[in-house]
């Protein structure tokens, strides 16, 4: 069975517009203008159980909107989703027991309390009895080396330790699919490395399916064997990492470039640029949908 199955997913947003200056303000009061943006446009893909998938694209490409539709936060305008055979629109609650989510920019932890207290809370949310939760916390703390700061309030932790706890908290109920939205944002290289290790270990030891979005090429390269690139709401590439690289190496070879110049970073940049030429009226940059 596939862990994630998406067919022809689409979602359109409307954005309010305002013209410049005092006149524009006055006009917006009486007749607000709306502009339609197709955030996700007929996306189809599937993810196998146990797979680690990189789902990337420039800002405003539709990554977060897709994640929200996969987790039942947003309902698609068109198309179908199934995660672990469950329809997020109809069975959001049932699905919630089976999946975990980490949004790198949003905190879900209580910052004034310790990781231990936090884990207890998430345990209660997922109906784990108090007797089991102690063992589960110990297990996770051992696996991910949290022992030294398990009883330090989260706000006194370093950003890296905090993200480790965020990820651990989302694993408390043994989810079968984990959605990671930019987990390494704002971290230094050493901490990034340790977060990647954690994700890696989680995937191999717990067999968790991982759906990862990131702007960090390192994350993608070190963790994922498959990559989906979206731009302007559409999938522009769905390929294995290996194939993608060899394909580009091959092409560059024809253009007489040095193999060392062909990095994943350069490939991705090239794809992004090529796409934005095709879609000159794509949503303004900086607008994370």
């Amino acid at each position: 069975m596939n862990a994630i199955e998406a067919r022809d997913l689409s979602k359109t947003f409307r954005v309010k517009q305002k013209e410049k200056g005092m006149a524009g303000s006055l006009k917006a009061v009486f007749r607000p203008k709306l502009q339609e943006i197709r955030a996700v446009d007929q996306i189809s893909f599937s993810v196998e159980e146990g797979e680690m998938l990189a789902f990337i694209g420039p800002n405003g490409a539709g990554k977060s909107t897709t994640i929200k539709m996969l987790t039942g936060i947003l309902f698609p305008d068109e198309g179908q989703v199934e995660v672990l055979g469950i329809d997020p629109v109809k069975n959001r609650r049932k699905l919630a027991y089976e999946i975990g989510t980490v949004f790198g920019q949003k905190e879900q932890l209580w910052t004034h309390l310790t990781p231990y207290d936090n884990f207890r809370f998430f345990g209660a949310i997922y109906d784990i009895p108090n007797s089991d939760i102690e063992t589960r916390i110990r297990e996770l703390a051992d696996t991910f080396d949290l022992g030294s700061f398990l009883n330090t309030p989260v706000r006194n932790l370093s950003l890296g330790q905090r993200i480790r706890c965020e990820i651990t908290a989302s694993l408390i109920h043994k989810p079968r699919v984990l959605f990671l939205d930019e987990p390494t944002i704002g971290l230094d290289p050493v901490v990034k490395e340790s977060i990647r290790e954690l994700i890696m270990r989680m995937n191999t030891e717990l067999h968790t399916t991982v759906f990862l979005t990131s702007h960090d090429v390192g994350d993608i390269e070190k963790l994922c064997r498959r990559i989906i690139i979206v731009n302007g709401g559409r999938i522009v590439l769905d390929d294995s990492m290996e194939h993608l690289k060899s394909h580009y190496l091959h092409r560059k070879h024809k253009e007489n470039a040095q193999p060392s110049e062909v990095t994943l970073e350069s490939i991705i940049t090239e794809i992004y640029k090529a796409q934005s030429l095709q879609h000159p009226e794509a949503p303004e940059p900086g607008m994370e949908v």
């Binding site: 305002k18 200056g21 005092m22 303000s25 006055l26 009061v29």
Partner: peptide
């Protein structure tokens, strides 16, 4: 003042 004009109705 400009910003607040938008909230006039509110």
């Amino acid at each position: 003042v400009m910003e607040h004009l938008q909230y006039g109705a509110q």
